[in-house]
Computed example of a mutant assay.
Amino acid sequence: MPFLGQDWRSPGWSWMKTEDGWKRCEFYCDDFERNNNFNLQLLNLDDRETYTPEDCVLSAQKREKEQFNTARSQYYYREKWIFVQKESTKERHGYCTLGEAFNRLDFSSAIQDIRRFNYVVKLLQLVAKSQLTSLSGAAQRNYFNILETIVGKVLEDQYNPRLIRELLHDLSSTLCILIREVGKSVLIGNINTWICRLETILSWQQQLMNLEMNPQLGDGLTLCDLPMHMQSNILYRFSDAWDIINLGQTTPTLHVLSEDRHLWKELCKYHFSEKLFCKHLILTENGHVDWKLMFFTLQKYYPEREQYGDTLHFCRHCSVLFWQDCQLALLFKDSGHPCTANDPGSCLMPVSPQHFIDLFRF
């Protein structure tokens, strides 16, 4: 049955009001795949009168947005925040899901910021372990697109490949389990698509295993040229135990510094509370505390302290989750979202990756 109503214009077309009445817009695209530029013409269906592209700017923007939404990249939203709705109300029906948050928040741009890179990778790792099936189909596609960008960035910049190897290992293990249980409808989409994704992940793992770190040699000073006390001071700034161990394998001097008992003692105090030391006290043959062995023992039972350069923030007043731009916040006093509080800074709370997952557990 044809659509009949007060508005006789078909909702599937774009229309423009002229002096002679409403005219339908038709778009023509030349060489879209090469330069992604639109050559638009507005045709009068009665007398074939041609209009200039300036007469249908709004229609061109709408067409461009539709083309962008069907692309492989993450969906585009002007706002980089999302309202976390945990219950259905009269003003807003439905719930805010993890997949919706994954589509709305700008993770594609966040991984280009070195301060947010580790945060996004850790978040993807938590999703891969337990929340992959809770994502919608569009969110799963965005997930793998972001992961592809991360792997390409690591292969190009050689930045923190160990962290990406752990992410891919957890993701491949999860997919192997889910593919076996495909009869229970735990995956969205065709099984062949997921098998292809798993093969791609295995290929990425192989590329990262074959990755060779190319040192950038120059005429300036290197780490080994610094005095020993400065090298030791640099090691004390590390919060990752494996970074200390890997750096200690480069030179004999750094190896001696990486085995310092006081260094591992400070690392234990940073990640764990002192009341846990008595429960897992490990002594050497000389009666001294083996702080290095204690650290890896405590690591098995208790979570480490997480440290990130920048994280997502949650406004307790507005219940909004968003990325905060520190430069805009200082220059224009912009909180990063339309906050109605008198003092927006007092309502902000940094969100850890695990807290982000917990926000969408109902």
Rank of each mutant, 00 (worst) to 15 (best):
S273E: 10
I82N: 01
Q85F: 05
W8C: 11
L58S: 14
R180N: 10
A139V: 06
L293T: 15
F322C: 01
F144D: 00
N286D: 14
L43V: 15
L187Q: 06
V256H: 12
W264C: 04
Q206V: 02
P338Q: 09
L247F: 10
C176V: 11
Y77F: 12
R165F: 04
T200R: 13
N246F: 13
C326S: 14
V320G: 02
I245R: 00
L348Q: 09
S232W: 00
F362R: 14
L126S: 04
Q249R: 15
H313W: 13
V127T: 05
V120P: 03
L267C: 07
Q158V: 07
D325M: 05
L283W: 08
E100G: 00
W242H: 08
I82C: 00
P344A: 03
L124Y: 00
L276D: 08
H317E: 12
E49I: 09
Y95L: 15
C268E: 03
F3K: 13
V151I: 09
R78P: 03
N145W: 12
H262T: 13
Q41R: 14
K80M: 05
Q6S: 11
Y119E: 02
P303F: 01
N36P: 03
L155S: 01
V127Y: 03
L4K: 14
Q307T: 14
F362S: 15
Y119R: 03
Q327E: 11
C96P: 02
W291P: 06
I150S: 01
V121Q: 06
A110K: 07
I195Q: 14
K333E: 11
I188R: 08
H169T: 15
N160P: 04
Q112M: 11
I244L: 04
N36M: 13
F117P: 04
K333M: 08
R63L: 15
T251C: 15
R305S: 07
G345H: 06
W323F: 15
W291L: 04
R261Y: 10
M209F: 06
Q140V: 08
Y159I: 10
L42P: 02
N142T: 11
